[in-house]
Design a protein around this nucleic acid. Sequence first.
DNA 1: AACTACATGTAACTAGTTACATGATTTA
DNA 2: TAAATCATGTAACTAGTTACATGTAGTT
Lengths: 171, 171
Amino acid sequence: MSLRHAVLGLLSSGPSSGYDLLKTFEASLANVWPATQSQLYGELVKMADAGLIEVIAEGPRGRKEYAVTEAGRAELQHWMTEVEPERLRRHDMLLRVFFLNRLTPEQARDYLRRQQDRSAQLYAQLEKVREGLRAEDGDLARYGDVALEWGLRFHALNRDWAEWASAQLKD
Amino acid sequence: MSLRHAVLGLLSSGPSSGYDLLKTFEASLANVWPATQSQLYGELVKMADAGLIEVIAEGPRGRKEYAVTEAGRAELQHWMTEVEPERLRRHDMLLRVFFLNRLTPEQARDYLRRQQDRSAQLYAQLEKVREGLRAEDGDLARYGDVALEWGLRFHALNRDWAEWASAQLKD
DNA sequence: AACTACATGTAACTAGTTACATGATTTA
DNA sequence: TAAATCATGTAACTAGTTACATGTAGTT
């Protein structure tokens, strides 16, 4: 249900259309909560039905400008302060680790090596994103950077763990 | 589609029934790839239809013993060595971070503090699981421990990051 | 005889994906 | 006037969840 809360979060800093929200998802939230066009438009209709948001204006080409209602603000507040974040449940990189003994030792080492390389690459990519972000400001960029730090640490963890795991295999 | 591969992985070390597979999911794979009873039984039927597994025996109470076919083994091998693991896409703990400025500074700090505590707690829990695991052996336990190390590092990362993020808020 | 564990199956629902469809406005 | 961008909507499908349903075999 968090697409709903992502939308409430975005709209809580000002009204916007589905189209514009989609751009924001792609530009800012892509790494924490991606949304497709069809899912977003559908969700906006459901949220309006539920009274969390409302259409406050219609523009050219059928553009609809949505704003959060009081009920929407309350729901956002509730979700932010009282709902425990979901735990990470599925992790197919780790799932493969359980079956590493089905591979030859070389294949198993290759697998971990690929994960290590990939994480190093993702780390480097994120570092570049951070540089690009330095230019911008505003709250989304500011808090975006706090989230980005998590990402950097995450990729570093994966990289280092894969190296460690590779060494473990040798016994 | 990875439930399918989890099943292939488990069956690749010997035939088993849906019921027994479910126990293994609960005991060993719960943290990397949970499966519900209804999903598992449904998937087994689809996999048999697709020729990846087959019923090799029927026991009391309608028990069906499944075994991997050659096609199933090939699919497992393919998935292990040629399919890139999915990246983590959705992360609602981090999504909330983007909207931390909608809270009062105290609420925001509380949020991060709760995440820190929770991660510390999950870390401690996993450590206990590891102790319990030391007793067992066999490949699932052995590789399970490699995955568990990832989990420990992950919770430590979350704990430390939350502390860091909390300090960031003060400017 | 009652209880527990074994064992499978099905229905209704939610979230998310890809692909298709349509049309209006702005800009080169 | 052609192309790009703006803007929304819908259909078909997949994966996963919760709840319901049913019956058998072994244990106390």
